[in-house]
Amino acid sequence: MFDFILSKYNYWIYIILMMIGFYAMIGKKNLVKKIIGINIFQTAIILFFVSTAAKRGGTLPIVEHAHGHGIHHIHAASYVNPLPHVLMLTAIVVMVSTLGVALAIVIAIYRRYNTLEEDEILEQRK
């Protein structure tokens, strides 16, 4: 049992990170904290994707001497899967865009209510 948990440790960590992020998004009252939560949540998912691609003993998915040296035997098993990586590049960009928009909105909120605490904002909106 312990082995099982240990062998999948990055998945466990990813779930813990995700929960931390989720808690910050829902539970924290400060808006910037919520955004930090979003950030952690998203990186956790990226961690998950990267972990799915990783292999013990796998190397970077770059084929050496691909040109000019005849046909090499390419052992697909010895490379990590590059596709999730590619997806995650996009996901990181999306993440940063979300971050940018969120922070811009937070600044707009601050200008209007002069606070970043959700409860105080709700108090003012009554």
């Binding site: 979003i38 979300t98 909105i105 937070v106 209007r112 209510y113 904002i121 909106r125």
Partner: peptide, 14 residues
Amino acid sequence: APFASFNYLIFGTI
């Protein structure tokens, strides 16, 4: 609007 949008952002991102 900004506050409503922020809430939307949180839920939308989730």
